[in-house]
Design a protein around this nucleic acid. Structure first.
Lengths: 196, 196, 196, 196
DNA sequence: CCGTAAACGAGACGGTACGTCCAGTCTTATT
DNA sequence: AATAAGACTGGACGTACCGTCTCGTTTACGG
């Protein structure tokens, strides 16, 4: 886990936190595409050579910086599958809306995807933990009988997250606080819903 | 529809079709990120200057070329809301799976998004017509009573398309023929589904 | 002799005078280097293709236009060698100072000099007649005994004209009305001059 | 004097001498107009980007390269004003005849003259020192009584140099070893000359 | 408290592609 | 026959940023 701020002494980048903070700061001002390694170097006062010593390029720098901002927190069992899912998805919404990740995401993915390891790293850093937490929620739901037995868990998660992601990236629709609830409503109709 | 090969004399790019075809060909061989305008020029035998006369850069070239491949076809009324939705989403799946769009999409979006008009153009070229068709399907469904009255149509479409898109772009999950059906099942449970 | 304005009808450029006038006008506004064939076309309303039909390029266009402005007039015999020379050189000074030739000259020469014919054409258009006139003056001076017998006529002319040209082009010194007289004074000291 | 090869470490272009030498070499083979920055890059093995880092373009490159070849040497007092002047002008002749400067000059000037600083730089690099030396010679001559009291020194120098320059650039006359002497003879008639 | 090795600063460089400017040529109307 | 219209090839420009290299210089730990 590269996100540590403790004791970088002896062996390892001494300027790590400084650099990553600069990246985040710059991203709030400059879109990802305009951001350059040279600019990060200048803004942070850390020499370009040093950046390349520890990161292989801009996408890695940004990924590293943004990953540290992500809320991946485990979702407590509230007793209600709906609430759990809403809470989880609210984390996703916040990650997009309250950090530079939302706007930077498509470019970041496309950059990372140039190399096979890149995408893997991205998934590891941004997705793995969150998805594991969501899977846990879903399984609780299945166990309770709130969700069907042979639910395709992966697809279910893709649909939840995809709705938010697609808005953010493709259609440009509003991504706000109650989006999470409305998406969950589509997949898990509220009791006494309109469909029966 | 800008893709016509009749009478290119007098006004307008004479090499248009040749160029766009080359772009598609190159994209099947080279990932979007590696593709350069100079390479398109060389591969098509059309001089770089000429390309810049008619397109403002790589993203526009690619968008123009890919838009021509998209299936945006209207969805016939099969009598069943489920089938209509499945059929529509199958179009989306095919667009991703059978053209270079799937892999090129995130980078393309991120490039186009550098300018505000860019994103608008993208949505106009790739989304507007398809979404209008989908909205028609959904409204038929509401009229029939298959879908709830105050359904948020946009969000519903985002969720359908988002599931496929997210797979394609983020998780890298399989995007195949029956994905459409499985996604629709999540949103419109089959009669006698597991939830009752 | 390309400098004709009479009856270009039937076989020959119909827009000749219009074009050349435009070139002169543009040169008073735009330095030679910034002037382009396309600009001349636009400014004159004559299509680029037409320009290339009659002139082989910018330098030829400009040379043709400027040659028409040159004062090459023969120098009347005033009875005094000094006066004749001064009058002749005054023509040179005026050619530089009162037409765009002065500032355009070095660039024009350098462009024309790309091809061997180019320089020849330049000399034919701008130099030959004037130099012939000067040679006549000098020979009158030799006959009168005002100039030494075995004077190198060519070198003498080069020195006269060179002084003005060098000022104009290289040192950027003042080129004004009495320059001619001062140069002649150097080569043909006034009677009762300082040297005796 | 920027032409040093000692200690290029720390600050300043490391490939400077290599590049300038290449420019001179190329100029002996290719006329100035045909010379391109890209060609210099290729011929020298120094990348184009590097050239632009240190020079603002072709004219600056060439000026820098040629300036290093110029003979600007001070003229010793031979006791004779005539000899001093001849010796000085011989330097000019050699500069034109024995380096690529002669043929490149008009194009170089015209390129440099596009910007006001350009011409200033040219004069600083090629003229200032030589002219100062010449002025010294002339003043010695005036002091000795060989030259008139209120001689216009600048114009005198323009006439001397102009004769050679005009030959070289405009009329294309021969520029050879004894040209200097013949020009000086015109301005400073030999004792027992034809005019008395 | 001091030597040494890791980390950093400094600066030049090769390299890819960009997007642009003009030159000059071609084909096909039009007058 | 001359001109207009307009698309095209082509060469070079000057720029941006990338990622790498060679050095010298600081820093802080571990003996």
């Amino acid at each position: 886990m590269p996100v540590s701020s403790a004791e970088p002494r002896r062996g390892g980048p001494r300027k790590r936190d400084l650099v990553l903070q600069t990246v985040v700061d710059e991203l709030t001002v400059t879109p990802y595409a305009q951001l350059t390694v040279e600019r990060i170097a200048e803004a942070s006062g850390v020499h370009k050579t040093t950046l390349y010593r520890w990161w292989s390029g801009k996408p890695q720098l940004v990924a590293d910086a943004l990953a540290a901002l992500m809320d991946t927190g485990p979702v407590p069992d509230t007793g209600s599958t709906r609430s759990d899912l809403v809470q989880w998805l609210t984390g996703t919404v916040r990650n997009y809306a309250e950090t530079p990740l939302g706007v930077a995401m498509p470019a970041l993915i496309s950059d990372l995807a140039r190399t096979p390891e890149g995408l893997g790293a991205f998934r590891g850093a941004f997705l793995a933990e969150r998805r594991a937490n969501c899977a846990a929620v879903i399984e609780r739901g299945v166990a309770r009988g709130d969700l069907p037995d042979h639910l395709d868990v992966d697809l279910f998660m893709d649909t939840l997250a995809g709705a938010v992601f697609y808005r953010q990236v493709v259609t440009g629709g509003l991504v706000d606080a109650d989006l999470a609830e409305r998406v969950v409503d589509l997949l898990l109709p509220p009791a006494g819903g309109a469909r029966e």
